[in-house]
């Protein structure tokens, strides 16, 4: 099916992010990726948490489930397990996924469901007016903080890799083409794909701003800004685990890259492994017909409405004779 990004617009909803917010870029990236992959809107489910980022699904024409703060992954899991045919994209803020939802973040890795998870990494709690998020570094004092940040930051990519995510990438809200390509790869990846999306928040984060990422503060002799972001794919970095024997070394390489920050920040794919069985495959091992008749597609009743279940095996075990 030929689809255009505009087919994924939601004209009846006013996108209420602050002017210049990185969330617009992510919205565009999603719409472009969906269109290029030819995903029909009704087959996609965007699940989100709470925060400025949580509003993303209302601005994309596909099914949207805007859930609770930190709970995007559990909802997404339930949806995906019930109907593995659906293309499930979980969305959340950095507070959402790495603060209140950190337990789910880690445990989702253990399951490796075939879905995508995108964190809007803006270093702050946008919707509650700028408190420090779990990705803000120790000692930084963004605009709304009364004191410098007293906590060290969590390394989102590193956490994803050691938690078992089989795809870990980073992209940037204002490099919409790169983001769109990364989202496409994540969707096409077999297994749980994580994208750490750097997202400037012009309202509350006056440190990792658009200008900062672009390197406006460090122009070369010709006056050209030296962007802090560089693309892993342009450095020959190979994130793919082709064989299990490479896995440890690829994970270590990803962790090593994930440590880079400051004047050189890598974007692109850090780690990718399709050898690990997905949760759906593991379920199929137990339930041979899981794919054809997943929970959401079972009949339950006959044409007269009676339950079709035959409990005689259950009752047989419990019989007294």
């Amino acid at each position: 099916m030929v689809l255009k990004p505009s087919d994924f617009r939601v004209p009846e909803v006013f996108a209420d992010w602050c002017p210049g917010c990185g969330d617009f870029g992510i919205m565009n990236g999603l719409q472009m990726a969906f269109a290029e992959l030819g995903l029909e809107p009704h087959r996609i489910v965007m699940v989100s948490g709470i925060g400025c980022s949580g509003k993303e699904p209302h601005n994309v024409k596909c099914n949207g489930v805007h859930t609770l703060h930190g709970r995007t992954l559990p909802f997404a899991m339930g949806i995906k397990v019930a109907n593995p045919e659906l293309e499930v994209i979980a969305i959340g803020g950095d507070g959402d996924g790495l603060g209140i939802g950190a337990g789910h973040f880690v445990n989702a890795g253990r399951r490796n469901l075939d879905m995508t998870y995108i964190i809007h990494n803006n270093g702050v709690y946008g919707l509650t007016k700028g408190q420090a998020s779990p990705t803000l570094r120790l000692g930084l004092q963004t605009k709304a903080l009364p004191k410098p940040n007293i906590n060290e930051a969590v390394n989102a990519i590193g956490l994803a890799v050691i938690s078992g995510y089989t795809f870990a990438a980073r992209s940037y809200a204002y490099d919409v083409r790169h983001l769109k390509d990364t989202i496409k790869q994540a969707i096409q990846h077999k297994g749980l794909a994580f994208i750490d999306c750097l997202q400037p928040c012009p309202t509350y984060n006056n440190i990792t701003t658009k200008d900062w990422y672009a390197g406006e503060d460090r122009k070369d002799a010709s006056g050209k800004p030296q962007s802090r972001l560089y693309k892993l794919e342009e450095t020959g970095f190979d994130p793919v685990v082709h064989d299990w024997s490479e896995d440890f070394q690829k994970k270590m390489a990803a962790m090593d890259k994930a440590r880079e920050w400051g004047d050189r920040i890598p974007i692109g794919v850090f780690y990718k492994n399709e050898l690990e069985p997905t949760f759906e495959e593991r379920l199929k091992d137990r339930i041979p017909f899981y794919r054809e008749r997943p929970p959401a597609k079972q009949k339950l009743k006959d044409q007269n409405g009676f339950s079709t279940v035959d409990l005689s095996e259950f009752m047989g075990e419990l019989k007294t004779s």
């Binding site: 489930v65 559990p74 899991m77 339930g78 949806i79 397990v81 019930a82 929970p295």
Partner: peptide, 8 residues
């Protein structure tokens, strides 16, 4: 809840 919304 997610599973219920998906129809299971």
């Amino acid at each position: 809840s997610g599973a219920a919304l998906a129809g299971a």
